[in-house]
């Protein structure tokens, strides 16, 4: 299925990143790369540093050591709004939408960085501002169509079930036309059907828009199915990095992440 999609060179490289909060070492000397047009999964047990890693990538956290190269430009520090302006969009583990606003309005906020008209023009809805808004609205409508959320276009987001809110969040991230999309547990708390839908949307986004996607996910079935490569973190360290099959076969991953070997080690020790 992925045959037609050309996975290119590195879009983003993370080199020797270390991040500490006081005495807590969240990330230790992490390096990996995200390649153009791929779906990369970051997995690991709770507290492994997955969300921290995403926060570092989009400039929310600033690592004490290491560097990030995005689209060939190396930088030590980047603010979230700079990351957004350069084409990095994300969704959050705990949904961060404007609950009182409609689905459509929430998605329109994703277009904010693309709006060029000055505030007072927009407020008065004058000629160029009106044209601009119509263009943005048309773009959002394409996303609404793509994610099949026409029926909730005008519904306040707070009234929607959890699974749909997740989809609206994805829609808002897509509205920014990102090159790199970071998804923090897009399928958490969903039932099987909602998960299947979301998987399909993630793959469709990747295929249709060529968006590079880095996602954090706990559901191993999902991860192995949809990702091209997997990075495994544990206690802030990188354990492995490779295709799903490689990662599945990696002894360090089996030992640490799947946790099956603890009993074996214990019984081996007893003998």
């Amino acid at each position: 299925m992925h045959a037609a999609r050309q996975i290119g060179g590195p879009l983003l490289q993370v080199e020797n990143i270390s991040l500490s909060f006081g005495g807590v070492r969240a990330l230790a000397n992490i390096s990996f790369e995200i390649r153009e047009h791929e779906v990369l999964a970051i997995i690991g047990p709770n507290g492994a540093g997955k969300s921290s890693m995403l926060n570092v990538i989009n400039g929310f956290y600033h690592p004490q050591e290491g560097r990030i190269t995005y689209k060939g430009k190396t930088r030590a520090r980047m603010r979230p709004h700079q990351a957004a302006a350069q084409g990095i969009a994300r969704t959050f583990q705990n949904i961060a939408l404007f609950k009182g606003m409609s689905t459509l309005d929430n998605i329109m906020t994703g277009r904010l960085l693309k709006m060029r008209q000055p505030f007072f023009m927009q407020a008065l809805y004058l000629g160029p501002a009106k044209r601009e808004e119509l263009e943005h609205r048309a773009f959002c409508e394409r996303i609404i169509d793509f994610l099949e959320i026409q029926a909730i276009r005008k519904t306040p987001v707070g009234r929607l079930p959890y699974g749909l809110q997740k989809r609206v969040e994805l829609a808002r991230a897509l509205a920014a036309e990102p090159e790199l999309l970071l998804l923090d547990e897009p399928m958490a708390g969903m039932n099987v059907e909602e998960k299947e839908d979301m998987c399909r949307f993630v793959l469709d986004v990747n295929e249709h828009f060529g968006t590079t996607i880095a996602l954090i996910e706990h559901d191993m079935g999902v991860v192995m199915d949809i990702s091209d490569r997997v990075v495994v973190l544990d206690y802030g360290r990188k354990l492995a990095d490779g295709t799903p099959d490689e990662v599945r076969a990696d002894q360090a991953v089996i030992d640490a992440y799947l946790g099956v070997s603890h009993e074996e080690t214990a019984s081996a020790a007893a003998e």
Binding site: H2, A3, A4, R5, R200, D204, E207, H208
Partner: peptide, 8 residues
């Protein structure tokens, strides 16, 4: 055509 572009 959505989702079908790689059906060959």
């Amino acid at each position: 055509p959505r989702g079908l572009r790689n059906y060959r």
